[in-house]
Amino acid sequence: MFIGAALVALTACGTAEPPTRAIPQTPSAGSPGTSTAAAPSAPKSCPGQWGGDGIGGWVPAASDVAGAAESLVPGSPVEALICAYPGDNTNPGGERLAGTRTLKDGAGQLARDLGYLPVGSTDSGACTAMGGPMTNYLIRFGYADGRSLWVGSAEEVNHCAMTTNGTAGSSTYVGDRITDAYRKGPATSAREKDPCRTWMARRGQNARMVPDEPTSLVVCRLDPQGGQASRTEYGTDVARQLATTLNALDTRPSDNSCRQTEGADPGVILRLVFGYADGPPTAVMVQAFCTPSVNNGLLQADGDDRLHQEATRLAPR
């Protein structure tokens, strides 16, 4: 299989340097105007050592928070404690705690981004095998009624890591987002990321190529050499018409790889980014020179001439 081109297009490789020093923990005082009785309990201490033997995919304990089987972070937590365990992806497991950060204002945004991830898939598909630094993360979300929930994930150079709350899991990569939250405090919303450079996923993508009802569309024409992508933007009518076409395809679980069609020009790589009134966008790759030519990271399909022509017509020149 020709995995390289497809993986570059799907993941836009590149990773932030893992944290290497502790960040002082934010005091856990309640928000202004909140009574002491209503304030969440202070997050428990981070475990001193990562207890899993892999890259992401481990939590100290599963939660009994309602909805944890359907969403990685259900409800509306008010606080998040991020624990960082840097190491190397060639020998994962047992990393020591290197630092913590407590989020107040940013906890809700991080919870929403993680809560919208597709759950159920535990297979990360085809991954490149570059060795390098990685950081395992634990996040303890605290709720106003004193309940809590752990999420375990990782940042690593191949962008292949499981995220779990101990009950539900997702193979969608979010390590870069967690590192942003750890380093900078309040997390940048997935909606605010550059849609042409950041891979995103949304609940329902494991069942439909384009879930829910999109309200906008950005068509990105990616540079095979990694340069600046060009883009065009469209409204609700175009977004929903194209989503209907994509959802009519005969899909199957994605292994995030493709075979280059003999003699085909590999120069046109399109990323279709569908936006929504609420929650993160979702992205679909269309590469007419590949088989299968359509991939949303969890599902793939063989696109027909009609789809390829329509996507090319909407793409920037």
Rank of each mutant, 00 (worst) to 15 (best):
residue 4 G to R: 13
residue 6 A to G: 10
residue 12 A to Q: 15
residue 19 P to R: 07
residue 25 Q to C: 07
residue 43 P to S: 07
residue 51 G to I: 04
residue 52 G to D: 11
residue 55 I to V: 15
residue 56 G to H: 00
residue 56 G to F: 02
residue 57 G to P: 04
residue 59 V to R: 01
residue 65 V to Q: 09
residue 70 E to Q: 15
residue 71 S to D: 03
residue 85 Y to N: 04
residue 88 D to W: 14
residue 91 N to Y: 07
residue 93 G to E: 09
residue 94 G to T: 06
residue 97 L to R: 10
residue 104 K to V: 03
residue 105 D to F: 10
residue 113 D to G: 10
residue 114 L to A: 03
residue 124 S to D: 08
residue 138 L to R: 03
residue 139 I to Q: 03
residue 140 R to Y: 04
residue 140 R to Q: 15
residue 141 F to K: 08
residue 142 G to I: 01
residue 145 D to Q: 06
residue 146 G to H: 10
residue 147 R to V: 04
residue 151 V to F: 04
residue 156 E to C: 08
residue 157 V to W: 02
residue 159 H to I: 04
residue 163 T to A: 05
residue 164 T to I: 10
residue 167 T to K: 13
residue 170 S to A: 08
residue 177 R to E: 13
residue 178 I to Y: 00
residue 180 D to Y: 07
residue 193 K to V: 10
residue 195 P to A: 09
residue 196 C to W: 11
residue 198 T to Y: 13
residue 200 M to I: 11
residue 202 R to P: 01
residue 207 A to N: 12
residue 211 P to R: 02
residue 211 P to Y: 03
residue 212 D to C: 03
residue 217 L to P: 00
residue 217 L to Q: 00
residue 221 R to G: 03
residue 229 A to F: 09
residue 233 E to T: 13
residue 233 E to A: 15
residue 234 Y to D: 00
residue 239 A to R: 02
residue 241 Q to H: 13
residue 242 L to F: 02
residue 244 T to D: 15
residue 252 R to C: 08
residue 253 P to T: 05
residue 254 S to L: 03
residue 259 R to H: 12
residue 262 E to I: 13
residue 264 A to M: 12
residue 267 G to P: 01
residue 275 G to A: 11
residue 275 G to F: 10
residue 280 P to G: 08
residue 290 C to R: 05
residue 292 P to T: 10
residue 297 G to E: 05
residue 298 L to P: 00
residue 302 D to L: 09
residue 305 D to K: 14
residue 313 R to M: 01
residue 316 P to Y: 11
